[in-house]
């Protein structure tokens, strides 16, 4: 009884909290570990799809981590990767079906990129590195943490690209008409793919100049 209580108390112990907070900065999956940008940059032209994409990835990472962690003692090591892929693909299909049923407009904008969550390197990375060796609860937190670390970058990109590229946020006009009449122009470049890459580069730059430990030697 006592030991059970102890375990419960430790659900949010400092070690567990680190699982969530570390991926937000020091071990950010995008800017530090270079994982998982593929499936996401293309949907950051607007805030809404970026947000839905971020949410989907977080859900999939967290759940996949839990499932694999529950299965970890039974998975035959020879078909480990295939089992992981199957679990991930099944979760992604579920997410895709739910999106199509409840937010059809956004799911159309996300088009193939939801499916590409399957090959998102964050997923396989976390499954191999963490879920295979840890209990479900820490695995869940690790998934949420990594998902969030990934999310804030996507949402930041979506925010800048939509605000300055289109003058709107979440589809609502933010920059008033009078600005345009006074000669303000939307920065069309931000809507185009290259801008996403340059913005990510800039985020990495800012992050690394504030935290010198992350600097690479070429």
């Amino acid at each position: 009884m006592k030991s059970q209580q102890k375990e419960k108390e430790s659900l949010f112990s400092p070690r567990y909290r680190k699982l969530i907070s570390n991926p937000l900065s020091l071990e950010n999956p995008i800017t530090v570990q270079v994982l998982g940008i593929c499936s996401a940059l293309a949907v950051t032209t607007k805030l809404k799809p970026a947000f839905v994409m971020a949410l989907s990835v977080t859900v999939v990472v967290a759940l996949a981590n839990v499932v694999i962690s529950l299965l970890r003692n039974g998975i035959p090591s020879r078909i480990r990767i295939i089992v992981q892929l199957t679990v991930v693909a099944a979760l992604v299909i579920l997410v895709d079906q739910v999106l199509k049923a409840f937010v059809y407009d956004v799911s159309k904008q996300l088009s193939v990129f939801v499916g590409l969550i399957i090959t998102n390197c964050i997923l396989m990375g976390r499954l191999e590195a963490f879920a295979m060796a840890n209990k479900p609860w820490p695995a869940f937190l690790d998934g949420i943490g990594n998902g969030l670390g990934y999310s804030w970058i996507l949402i930041a990109l979506g925010f800048f690209r939509e605000l300055f590229g289109n003058g709107t946020l979440w589809g609502y006009r933010i920059i008033p008409q009078s600005f345009y009449e006074a000669g303000y122009f939307n920065n069309g470049l931000l809507i185009l793919p290259p801008a996403a890459l340059i913005l990510v580069g800039t985020i990495i730059w800012i992050q690394r100049s504030r935290n010198k430990n992350l600097i690479e030697e070429y």
């Binding site: 800017t31 270079v34 185009l192 793919p193 290259p194 801008a195 996403a196 890459l197 340059i198 990510v200 580069g201 800039t202 990495i204 730059w205 800012i206 992050q207 690394r208 100049s209 010198k212 992350l214 600097i215 690479e216 030697e217 070429y218």
Partner: peptide
């Protein structure tokens, strides 16, 4: 290259320029 930009950062920006 400015130190914080080395490696990953500059690669992203270069890719962006190539994309343009």
């Amino acid at each position: 290259i400015p130190k914080p930009l080395r490696g990953l950062g500059i690669s992203f920006i270069l890719t962006g320029l190539m994309a343009i």
